[in-house]
Each structure stands twice: as C-alpha cells, then as structure tokens.
C-alpha cells in the first residue's frame, strides 16, 4: 500500500469515526435547510415561478462544503502537528505532498457525498427543489470550492495550536463570509457596497457557481468567472499555506 493510500485511509477513518465531524459535515447543513424552508415556506421568487428553496439550497450547500473542507483540514493539521505525527512523517521517506494529497482526496470525497445527500434531501417533495438540467456544472465548482477552502484550512491549521483555536478562527472566517456571500440571504437584498465586499470572498463564487448550475440564475460567463476566481483564491491560499506551514509547535 502506498503512503498516499494509507494516509487517505487513516484520514477517512478518523473522520467517519468521529460523531461530531459526521454531524457537522452532513447533518448540520440539512438542519439549516429545514430552518430556511420553514422561513420561506410556500413563497415563490417573483417572475421566476421558482420556490425559494431553489435559491436557498445552493447557498446552504456552498456554506456546508466550505465549512467541512476548512474545518476538516485545519483540525487534521493542528492535531497531527500537536500529536507529533508530522514529525513521524517527516522522519519517514514519505513526502509532504502525500500528506496533503491524501487529505485532499478525502476532502473531495466528503464534498461529493455532502452534495449528493444534500441535493437528494432538498429534492424531497417536502422541500421541492428542482435542479436545472445544467446541474452537472455543479461538479467542477464543488471540486474547486473544496480545493480553495482546503488551502484556506491549511493556513488556519498552521495558525492554531489547539482545537479551540481552530474552531474560533474557522468560525470567524466562515460564518461572516457565509452571510456576506449570500449563502443564507440573497445578495440582491443587501446594500450595494456590501455586494461589492462579497467580491473578495471566495464563498461568493462558490455560491454563484452552484446557484447557476442548479437554477440557471446568472450567465455562463458569470459561472466561468466564478471558476477562475476560485482558482486564483486557491493559488493565493496555497502560497500562504506553504509559507505558514510548521512541522512542529516548537520550531
């Protein structure tokens, strides 16, 4: 078994054996879906003939994907550094890219599972989401979203030395970003200047891209801009992530 495969398995097992991780990754976004569905029950968005769920579900899904990718990698990195596992890896012939790659492939798998579960539930008659035939466009944006927020998670995981610090920093990053990016609340209802602020936030592009894929809201150009923006965010976060990376807490 290659180091890459073994590490992927170790990360996967650590994730699925932790009830908290499973809950926050899969159940938590569904709870938000239920809450928003109750708030916007039976309302249609003017002139579209669509229910609010078609707009709210992609937003909540964007937040859920970003949240899980960022928290997951930040916790793993902090934990592996604290437990001296990074030292064990450094003292073996395995490259750091196997470590990051294994975490990445698990994050992609979890992201895909989140999407399938979430959209499946949102399509139940009680919620009534109706994805457009363009829904496969959600796949690339999902992969890019996980990649960008995984890179952001590397920075958080290097900055934080305790689980409490990971939770605090990650929440401070993700929760305001979710609101400012229109994940929970339509951007169009916000002041113009706040809409402009959302342009520097990666979650806005996840949101735009997934919304376009599922509802056709926006244009293909907007969709491609979203993809490009996420590539740029990933590159920036990755550079900072590599620079802030630490093998141990005392060096």
């Amino acid at each position: 078994m290659s180091a890459y495969a073994a590490l992927s398995r170790a990360v996967y097992k650590a994730a699925v054996r932790d009830a908290t991780t499973v809950f926050f990754t899969f159940a938590f976004p569904l709870i938000f879906l239920v809450i928003f569905a109750l708030i916007f029950r039976n309302q249609e968005v003017a002139d579209t003939g669509r229910g609010y769920v078609d707009y709210i579900a992609p937003g909540v899904l964007s937040w859920g994907l970003a949240n899980a990718a960022l928290f997951g990698v930040a916790f793993t990195l902090m934990q592996w550094r604290n437990d001296d596992l990074l030292r064990i890896i450094r003292l073996s012939p395995t490259s750091i890219w196997s470590v990051i790659g294994s975490r990445y492939v698990v994050a992609l798998g979890i992201g895909a599972a989140q999407c399938v579960l979430f959209v499946g539930v949102a399509m139940l008659p009680v919620f009534g989401m109706r994805p457009d035939p363009t829904w496969p466009l959600a796949i690339p944006i999902m992969l890019l979203a996980v990649t960008a927020f995984l890179a952001l998670g590397l920075i958080v995981g290097s900055a934080a030395n305790t689980p409490e610090a990971v939770a605090a920093i990650a929440n401070c990053v993700v929760v305001p970003m979710a609101f400012l990016s229109g994940s929970f609340y339509p951007l169009e209802l916000m002041p113009t200047w706040l809409q402009e602020v959302s342009r520097v936030l990666p979650m806005r592009y996840v949101n735009d891209g997934i919304t376009y894929a599922f509802t056709g809201f926006g244009t293909m150009t907007d969709y491609l801009i979203s993809c490009a923006a996420l590539v740029v965010f990933t590159a920036v976060f990755a550079v900072v992530g590599v620079r802030t990376f630490r093998w141990s807490n005392d060096s």
Binding site: A6, L7, A14, Q79, D83, D84, R87, I88, P93
Partner: peptide, 27 residues
C-alpha cells in the same frame, strides 16, 4: 527509527491500523 516523547498515534485508529499506516509511510 525515532520514538518521540509524546506517544504519536494516528487519530481514532486501532493499534493495528496505526502500525499499518506507519509501515506504509516506509512503503
């Protein structure tokens, strides 16, 4: 072979799974 002062084990694995992972680090 280096034993670290803190006992470093892969999170939430069994003893056997941990060692299988460490073995894989060495191919």
């Amino acid at each position: 072979g280096v034993q670290t002062q803190r006992s470093a084990f892969f999170t939430r694995l069994t003893a056997r799974e941990h060692l299988v992972t460490v073995a894989a680090l060495y191919g």
